[in-house]
Amino acid sequence: MSAVNLSGDVDCPVVPHLNSGCGFPAPNAEIFFLEPYATLNVAGMDFLIGKTSIIAALVSMIVAVFFLAAARPRKMVPGKLQSIGEQAYLFVRDQIAREVIGKDGDRFVPFLGSLFFFIWISNLMGVIPGAQFPIMSSLAFPVSLTLMVYITYLYLGMKHQGPIKFFTSAMFPPGVPKAMYGLLAPLELLQLVVTRPVTQAIRLFANMFAGHLLITTFTVGAYYLISPSIVGVLGSATSFGVTIILTGFEMFIQGLQAFIFTLLTAVYIGGSLHAEH
C-alpha cells in the first residue's frame, strides 16, 4: 500500500494508534489512488505500472489460462478442470445468454463469459490477501468495459433494426399519447445515449468503491482501538468481527455485481437484436 497519511497530520504515522494522540484516520478516497511502482514511456504516453495494472494483468491471465487449460484436453469423460470449466461456461450460457437473449444468444456467450469472469475475479481481488484491491473501484475499468458493451450494443442495434428505426423505436414508446412525445422523446434519447451506459459503469464502480472503503474503515478501526483496556479490547474485537462479516458480505456483492453487469449486457444485446414492440 502506498504511504498515504490517513489522518492528514504531518506528525502522525501512516496508520496511527489511539495512544499516539492522533485522530481516527478515517479512510477516504485517497486510498484508491495508489502510487505507481514505475512509469513506462511508450510513444510519448506515460503508462503507470502500479498495483492496479498488475492485478488487472494478473486477472486476465488467470481467466485466460484457466479456460484455455479447461478446454484443451476436451475428453468425453471430463477431468476435474474440464468439468469446472464446462460448469462455468454453462452457467453463463443457460443463466444469462439463453435466459435473456434466447437461442441466438449462444454466439454472445464468449463475450458475456469473458466479461463475467474478468469482473468477478477482479472483484474477488478485493478480498484476496496480498492483492486486497478491487480494481473495478478505479472508474477507468468499469468505464472501458461499459464502452465495449455499449459499442457492441449500438452496432448490433443499428445493424439489425436500421440506424433510424433503432433510435425512433427507443424514443417513441408505445402506449403513450402522441401529445406527450415532445416531452418524452428527448428524455428517452438522453436515457439511451447517456444515462444507460453511465449507470451501468457507475453501478459496478460505486459498489466496489463503497465495499472497499467499508472494509478498510473497520480494519483500520480494529488496529486504532486495540489496547489493554475494556474499551480497547471490546471495541477492537467488535471492529474486527465486523470486518470479517463485511468481507463475507462483500464477496457476495462481488459475485452479484459481476452477474448484474453481465445480465445488463445481455439485456442490451437482446434489445438490439429484437426490435421493440
Binding site: 435473456v100 434466447g102 437461442k103 438522453l190 436515457q191 444515462t195 449507470t199 439485456v267 434489445g271
Partner: peptide
C-alpha cells in the same frame, strides 16, 4: 416466460433507473 418476456421485464426494471436519472438531468 419466453426469453423475450424475461428480457423485456429485466430491461424495464433497469431502464426505470436510467429514465429517472435522465429525467432529473434533462428537466
Amino acid at each position: 416466460p419466453t426469453p423475450e418476456d424475461t428480457r423485456a421485464t429485466a430491461d424495464m426494471a433497469w431502464r426505470s433507473v436510467s429514465n429517472i436519472t435522465a429525467g432529473l438531468l434533462l428537466y
